[in-house]
């Protein structure tokens, strides 16, 4: 029995993130700051302890590998509770929030994200003592030249 082509998956590839309609909501540095404030509240964010690894130049913004590592003993008394990642130019500023604890042994996570454009990415680690540490990285997204989109 043949299975029909996965039309949705096919269409998913047929247009690029860069063709987002202008009417769509678009995150801005301000929107990102607001989203961060929602997580951090009145807390102070300090730079350090967090390492954010992203390729500085990516060939396609659809799949961008990202690793966040946080210096922490990951003990019950002193560990990273959460890692949040934000961006400033996708339609939404929030990328993901990971919840961790001493059972993780080390505070290192990796995933792959979408970037609609060249922009700044911010990672924030929240520790068991309520402190916030952060790192940021600028990523340049190369514009696709030969795309499948037919108009």
């Amino acid at each position: 029995m043949p299975s029909p082509p996965d039309r949705r998956a096919f269409l998913a590839g047929a247009a690029l993130l860069t063709v987002l309609p202008l009417s769509a909501a678009r995150a801005t540095p301000d929107a990102m700051a607001a989203a961060i404030k929602e997580v951090v509240g009145e807390g102070t964010i300090r730079e350090g302890k967090v390492k954010l690894d992203l390729p500085p130049l990516v060939e396609n913004g659809n799949v961008v590998p990202l690793t966040v590592s946080v210096e922490s003993p990951m003990t019950p008394a002193d560990h990273v509770k959460a890692i949040h990642v934000f961006n400033e130019k996708n339609p939404q500023p929030h990328v993901f929030s990971a919840r961790l604890g001493p059972r993780n042994g080390k505070a290192v996570i990796a995933t792959r994200i979408k970037l609609a454009d060249s922009q700044k990415i911010v990672a924030i680690a929240e520790t068991s003592s309520g402190a916030f540490w952060s790192a940021s990285a600028d990523v340049i997204v190369t514009l696709a030249a030969c795309i499948e989109d037919v108009t």
Partner: peptide, 25 residues
């Protein structure tokens, strides 16, 4: 027992990939 959780927004790439660590208890 829950050891890891991730809340995803639309900015996670298609066919999501996640890597994390755990202490072998």
């Amino acid at each position: 027992a829950e050891i890891f959780r991730m809340e995803m927004s639309p900015a996670i790439a298609a066919n999501p990939f996640v890597s994390f660590f755990a202490v072998a208890t």
